[in-house]
Design a binder for these strands. Structure first.
Lengths: 221, 221
DNA sequence: TCGACTTATGTGACTTAGTCACAGACCAAG
DNA sequence: CTTGGTCTGTGACTAAGTCACATAAGTCGA
């Protein structure tokens, strides 16, 4: 099965002339991966541009010592340009993309990518905007890690992972990997949150029992 | 005075046809700034692409609390794409570019930039390569800050600041700003280095008295 | 050459984060 | 109910950052 028209879904492709979009649909192949699959990684460097049609990809970096930090997430409707960047650079880098959900993506070969960037203004804009977004995401990560307090960062992350829900399903280890710290540290901060009535914990789940307080902490400290 | 032919100096422009290069020289204006000048910053967002012809720009990010971290340096022959990225994103960001030396740059207006990206393959390659380089620089910073030990990072930085020289001229505060830490912390690590005979200090200067030892520390720990 | 000022560096006490080595606790499958 | 795997808790320790100063080293003008 192919997607009905994935080119509708991206600001960089929806604005293209119909003829170009037809060509696009022909050149791209559809990729489906199950949740948990590695979309790209040090051993698996793709030479193509990803249009994430559905699902979510978590891009993280890990250290030699086994610690890990989430750099950003690619949501449906976005493309993953970091891969193309590193493809160009041919450098060893240890970022990894993991499917957080089942994903459906359109994969555009490098040659087609080059051609589109050259010929189509809206596509070009889309690509540069995507780059900018990632650069800014990374600036934010640097800022957080270098200058942010861990309790504040954890409060932020809990809220963003929960979205509109009251509870999230995550182990302390997973949260540590989000923020680039160690599991024990998360355990302690969460215990502190618990004592202050902001969260309730059970194995693998955390209930945000006082979101306003968490938000307050997340904003200032 | 104009530069004789700055388009020779950049891989993205040297490969262009002579006619295009002529056009380029006409469209770009030459910018000269003295050492210490702010090239760009939160209040001063340029809407153009920088070709750094001569000198060096230090790009750093600073926190509300006044701490600062160096993200990367733009050397002569490189262009500064982060500015264009953030221009596109229209986001508030607190990165700042400071001229470390007197600088000479060719500044290309956005429209000319767009046109070149569209029409000229070598230019396009150059731009994407520049983006990649910065992304990778930032990944490195994240890795260092999140997972690296400070003594190791300081040893690295001292060596890279020294280059082939034996001595560098920098206050502890400056070094702290390089690595995104506090002055006192740098003071202590340097004292430790001194005790171990790796450096000698005087006010505002640090002599690397045992580079091999520093290199050894920088490599592993 | 002597202060007076500015800037750079040193230091102790304390908080926050990360590491290490475990001990329990929970849960699912047999 | 046991067994084994995963998850969480804990204490002791090291590393890093913060705060509030003290001291030193240059600079400049009288």
């Amino acid at each position: 099965m192919t997607l009905n028209d994935w080119t509708e879904r991206f600001t960089g492709t929806a604005a293209l002339p119909p003829a170009v979009r037809d060509r696009l649909r022909q050149m791209a192949r559809v990729l489906r991966l199950p949740a948990g699959a590695q979309v790209f990684g040090p051993t698996n460097v793709p030479d193509s541009l990803f249009f994430l049609y559905d699902g979510r990809i978590r891009v993280s970096q890990s250290s030699e010592s086994g610690r890990e930090i989430v750099l950003y997430r690619v949501e449906a409707g976005e493309s993953c340009v970091l891969t193309t960047a590193c493809m160009l650079a041919e450098e060893a880098y240890n970022a990894e993309g993991l499917a957080e959900t089942d994903i459906v993506a359109a994969v555009l070969p490098k040659t087609a990518f080059d051609q589109l960037v050259a010929e189509e203004e809206p596509f070009r804009k889309f690509v540069f905007a995507a780059y900018s977004r990632r650069l800014i995401d990374l600036l934010r990560v640097v800022d957080d890690v270098a200058f942010g307090r861990l309790d504040v960062r954890l409060a932020e992350r809990l809220l963003s992972l929960a979205g509109d829900f009251k509870e999230i399903s995550a182990t302390h280890q997973k949260l540590a990997s989000e923020l680039g710290t160690a599991r024990e540290v998360i355990s302690r901060v969460l215990q502190d949150f618990q004592k202050r009535g902001m969260v309730a914990q059970s194995r693998g789940r955390i209930a945000l029992t006082d979101k306003p307080a968490l938000r307050h902490l997340a904003r200032a400290g």
